[in-house]
Design a protein around this nucleic acid. Sequence first.
DNA 1: ATCCGCCTCCGCCGGACGGGGGAGGGCGGC
DNA 2: GCCGCCCTCCCCCGTCCGGCGGAGGCGGAT
Lengths: 220, 220
Amino acid sequence: MTRPAPVRVVLADDERMVRTALRAILSAEPDLEVVGEAATGAEAVSVVRDLRPDVVLMDVRMPEIDGIRATEQILATLDEPPRIVVVTTFENDSYVYDALRAGASGFLLKRADADALVQAVRLVARSDSLLFPAAVRTLATEHARAHPAPPEWVAKLTGREREVLRHMAQGLTNAEIARRMEVGPATVKSHVAAVLAKTGTRDRTQAVIAAYEAGFLNAG
Amino acid sequence: MTRPAPVRVVLADDERMVRTALRAILSAEPDLEVVGEAATGAEAVSVVRDLRPDVVLMDVRMPEIDGIRATEQILATLDEPPRIVVVTTFENDSYVYDALRAGASGFLLKRADADALVQAVRLVARSDSLLFPAAVRTLATEHARAHPAPPEWVAKLTGREREVLRHMAQGLTNAEIARRMEVGPATVKSHVAAVLAKTGTRDRTQAVIAAYEAGFLNAG
DNA sequence: ATCCGCCTCCGCCGGACGGGGGAGGGCGGC
DNA sequence: GCCGCCCTCCCCCGTCCGGCGGAGGCGGAT
């Protein structure tokens, strides 16, 4: 069985120990070769540009430039960019979504065992067709659309005003809101007026639209 | 180096040729063992229940029960369910999202080469920490929320009524809509009334809410 | 002690909205 | 030809809404 060219890997992590550990694990595999390391995002970009590896293991938290931006820059500036696997600690980290959107081919948890690590590197290196490609990119983009940075006006709303806006977004009239909140209709009118002013809208319909677009109903 | 127990795999695909091909590929690997096959979703569920494999390669399109439902049933009824890899043809297939939501550990394109296939099986078999776990599940659920099956009323709206509803969802008044559509205000009132009737809402705010919840603004 | 923000309410007004009912024309199908 | 659907527009009316201006109480900050 002929030996094909080994998979060339670059490690980007600001902690030396982590890099050493990763290198030790990967070097034990004859088909994997660690060709370079980087301790910052900026360094990662230049190292990758120079060495042209097949795979980059990219930590998210790094000085100067974080792993996400580094990923973006690498993918944007290189012709045949490497596959990038983003390394993170928590699997529900919001970094995950950013990483996907940035174009990472996958991500790996720091607590993954050595075996999973080498499998992942091999897999990512040769797959242009595996585990969650374009479809997941779509999802991440949707996620960003569904969870935009909440506009400033959200912070300016008082507690009562938020309640009223929520009720408005249920399609309730002022009178109904008054009953549910156990206050007078005039009070609701005041709150509604405040909401309209702070959201910069002119009627309840526009306010509700703003609430939807701001993702106000999911979080806030 | 001691040989650990091989990864036990079940193949579920309605085409015999595909099963044969998959079996041939996987059987060439000493650490992988194909322990069973199924030609339908229902069969897949019972075979998996009997054989308790580590990994299932599940085709999406199958008679009786499709791969998605089979996946759901397997994951719901078994205590230590296998990892399920869903096999599909197009990577942007909506099946992908359903598969993720159903709890599949990954998916594989039919055009993936033999090497990617075995790597994927090994990877999925031993990773409870790899490539897009919980976070992606979250994304898929969001996707379902963002793209719900459009309610019946959408089909009942006439062309003009759809236009009016879109404009309503921009926060426009009847007069403004009339100007933009170059018709009289009375006409817009008629359309609005029809929209309210067909959507089962009582005012424009509720109609706009219904439009948002139905995903009417993205597609329809 | 004072001020400010928030919550609570009041009255008045004009305009927008929604319900009801009707009507004419165009266009395609039976 | 006729019926049905759609688009267009009309009047009347009651209600809801939003704008304006004002006011009292209360609690926290300075």
